[in-house]
């Protein structure tokens, strides 16, 4: 293939994209949205993995307070627990209502982002970290059953139960991410394939003439491939721009679940951008290739 031909095909692709601007815009936004969901599910998975590794690093128990328990009960329980042998640290969630609200609202410009943050809600949970890492699970369970006898405590979730729940949550999040990622990738594939199919049908006459004049199938399809490539690049830029904008807006050191924890280093940001760009390019080019073969002719 000659360079002038590639240049000519690029010009043709630009002309075609201008002519089908509404289809381009629709496909671009759809692909960018799918990529955004894909990127967010990946970031959430990474966040789960990070939190999981932190959560199982030290043995602990969760104390769930009675529904009617107030801040006074919680504070009393915390001061009582800190005196206990075998307890290294106690972390009470949302120690006071004003503090909890400020803590959650401060890093975010838009309060409506955080559903369920209302004044007047009582804290419900206390996290207890055990002191001795060398003890067996049975020792931790014995300690947890002792905690259950304290006043204001509704339920104690022991270390083994907690670990099981975390493992389940981690595997569930992994499968959810894979499923969501697969679904969004499939949508990307279908959108790019339909876009290229539309372009191919618009250029049908031209493709026939080109084939008669000796263009190879790849040369005939090149303008469509270039359009798919442009879609992939622009959609990736749109998606990455949105993700980085959110990262800049929501730097959330106080959230329990830090969705951006994976992007805490520049190297990882680069890796993230590279993977999104390569994956979208692969999907769009594959979609374009499929649009010229039998399976997608079903939509004709």
């Amino acid at each position: 293939m000659t360079w002038p031909f590639v240049r000519n095909a690029s010009l043709l692709a630009v002309q075609a994209m201008r002519r089908n601007s509404s289809a381009v815009l629709f496909s671009l936004l759809s692909i960018a949205l799918c990529l955004l969901f894909l990127a967010c599910s990946w970031l959430l998975l990474e966040s789960f993995r990070f939190h999981y590794s932190q959560a199982i690093s030290r043995p602990k128990a969760w104390i769930v307070l009675h529904e009617k328990a107030g801040y006074g009960d919680q504070e009393r329980l915390v001061s009582q627990l800190t005196q206990w042998p075998g307890v290294a640290r106690v972390h009470a969630f949302c120690e006071n209502r004003g503090g909890s609200r400020t803590e959650m609202l401060n890093p975010v410009s838009w309060p409506w982002w955080i559903p369920g943050v209302r004044t007047g809600e009582a804290p419900t949970r206390v996290e207890v970290f055990f002191a001795n890492d060398g003890d067996s699970d049975a020792d931790f369970e014995a300690l947890a059953s002792k905690l259950a006898g304290l006043s204001g405590v509704a339920e104690v979730i022991g270390w083994s139960t907690l670990r099981e729940r975390l493992e389940y949550a981690q595997s569930f999040s992994k499968w959810m991410t894979v499923t969501a990622g697969g679904a969004f990738s499939l949508i990307c594939l279908i959108v790019s394939s339909l876009f290229c199919r539309l372009d191919a049908s618009i250029r049908r006459e031209e493709r026939e003439v080109a084939e008669l004049l000796g263009a190879t199938p790849f040369q005939v399809r090149l303008p469509s491939y270039l359009q798919a490539l442009a879609l992939a690049i622009f959609a990736s830029i749109l998606c990455l721009g949105t993700v980085l904008f959110l990262l800049w807006q929501v730097e959330v050191p106080h959230f329990q679940l830090k969705p951006w924890i994976f992007l805490r280093e520049w190297g990882r940001i680069g890796l993230f951008m590279g993977v999104i760009l390569c994956w979208s390019t692969f999907l769009c080019l594959l979609g374009c290739r499929l649009s010229y073969s039998k399976p997608v002719r079903f939509w004709d």
Binding site: T2, W3, P4, F5, R7, N8, E205, E206, E208, V209, A210, L212, L213, G214, A215, Q219
Partner: peptide
């Protein structure tokens, strides 16, 4: 005729050359 109606006269005539030649 089998021309490409949306493309210019120059583009139509140069198309076979684009497939074969590498010098603009």
């Amino acid at each position: 005729l089998k021309l490409m109606p949306a493309r210019t006269v120059y583009e139509n005539v140069s198309f076979p050359l684009l497939l074969a030649e590498s010098s603009r």
